[in-house]
Amino acid sequence: MDITLKVWRQTGPDDKGGLVTYDVPDISPDMSFLEMLDVLNERLNDEGKEPIAFDSDCREGICGMCGLMISGEAHGPERTTTCQLHMRSFADGDTITVEPWRADPFPVIKDLVVDRSAFDRIIQAGGFITVNTGAAPDAHATPVPKANAERAFVAAECIGCGACVAACPNASGMLFMGAKVTHLAELPQGQPERMSRVVSMVAQHDAEGFGGCTNIGECTAACPKEIPQDVISTLNRDLRSALRHQS
């Protein structure tokens, strides 16, 4: 199949950048989207043009490193990561626009590569349980009701790719943060730091410049791990509890 790409090219953080059109003929529907870009990059390299920079690592949908805005949809038309999107999801002759995640807390480094370290800093603010190595009691000392363990797991599936932020009209990081807060809030081990955790994380989220949530649901629709919206509810509830207990 033949397709036309409009790819965001930007040489560095200070460059203005713009969309560049490439014809990509004769590709296989079995290629993943990133393999299609690999093929284009090989050609660009042969032509003496610098290849398109984009992030990817595991290419099996779990590391969260890849992430492109494909014709206006985070990770493209399927509900999966960009690396698991295949060209058979497109039609012969399609024109596809490829852009980086756009959010001020995710500045563009080059072409389609953005800096998502804001997410790391949100985790640093409190997305953990304080337990030094060796200080743990026996794993069976604290049973966890299956329902709580299951919900903790669902929330913990987040891969930190940033699609939620990219898809959100407000560029909000609430789904990412809600997933972590819910994961730890559902477990007995997460209770001691529950209030301070949510306050610190939300404060960091705001300091990074993410927008607020308007409960629209674009984030969940874009999330390759289908993290549900109700984790944001848990986040909100915990912050409300913190408001009561802190002042």
């Binding site: 190595t133 009691p137 794993a139 903790a152 913990a156 081990q189 997460g190």
Partner: peptide
Amino acid sequence: QCVAQGVP
């Protein structure tokens, strides 16, 4: 250790 860290 992992259970104490919250590994589900």
